[in-house]
């Protein structure tokens, strides 16, 4: 017997799963730069940022598993689900085919995360509020890192400007999915309303782009589907790499 759905928005478990999947997939992409960043200090910085994101993912997925009540822990959710069961936005799964792409994604996703977590730190649900308050402070450092690189690359050489602009143009359409309308669950509170976050997000991002002498892309094509399990071609490859050990050695411990 399952209880009938009484709300139109996602239930809290689905909502927390979205946040956890966003952080997990972003962490996996950022961690991929470790040992191949353009300079050694950047290796350390990106590994630190990936670690922060992974920490957020662990707390959120653990909580999603508790809300679900099926006995799935953070590992079962991260490594035991297939592509169509992931609820992350497509933005975070896009391949970092250029360093500028990684920075553009970090800027757009980081500003969104900071605004969202700040709003969620006032959530009625105490666990979600606790995770969000902690994570909001961490994301401020991620945004700072992305902003400093955006300025350096955008307002740098002709080549760095060209590639940073190309990255911004490439990634921009995928930012719309972050703000898809739909009320968050009541326990998340009004501070998490995606429609209300887009305005502040645009103002902050547009200011950075302007200072970096970059053109803000026109709004047009807005790919979507991540929240309902539809992902880009690259996502399956990401999961295959991330989940390989867990699936090859079920139940293994060290």
């Amino acid at each position: 017997m399952t209880a009938p759905m009484t709300t139109t928005g996602p239930d809290l478990r689905d909502y927390v799963l979205r946040l956890g999947d966003d952080a997990l997939v972003a962490a996996q992409r950022v961690a991929g730069w470790c040992t191949r960043a353009p300079q050694f200090e950047e290796d350390v910085a990106l590994a630190n940022i990936a670690l922060d994101l992974l920490g957020q993912a662990r707390a959120l997925l653990t909580y999603a598993g508790e809300l679900e009540g099926l006995g799935r822990d953070e590992d079962a959710l991260a490594f035991g689900r297939d592509e169509h069961e992931f609820r992350n936005v497509q933005l975070v799964e896009l391949p970092d085919d250029d360093f500028a792409t990684a920075i553009a994604k970090m800027l757009f996703f980081g500003v969104y995360q900071r605004l969202l977590y700040t709003g969620l730190s006032r959530a009625a649900d105490p666990t979600l509020a606790g995770i969000a308050a902690k994570a909001a402070k961490e994301t401020a450092y991620h945004v700072d890192h992305a902003v400093s690189w955006t300025l350096r690359l955008g307002d740098g050489t002709a080549e760095s400007h060209r590639r940073m602009q190309a990255a911004v143009d490439h990634v921009w359409p995928y930012t719309h999915e972050l703000f898809e309308p739909g009320p968050p669950p009541a326990a998340a509170g009004p501070g998490a309303d995606p429609a209300a976050l887009r305005g502040p997000w645009c103002r902050e991002v547009e200011q950075v782009l302007a200072e970096a002498t970059l053109r803000r892309p026109e709004d047009g094509w807005a790919p979507t589907g991540g929240r309902s399990g539809v992902h880009t071609e690259a996502f399956g490859h990401l999961l295959a790499e991330m989940q390989y050990v867990y699936r090859a050695h079920p139940g293994a411990r060290w």
Binding site: L51, L53, G55, A59, I131
Partner: peptide, 8 residues
């Protein structure tokens, strides 16, 4: 309590 969520 952790200092950072991902504190190893």
């Amino acid at each position: 309590t952790p200092t950072f969520l991902g504190c190893p």
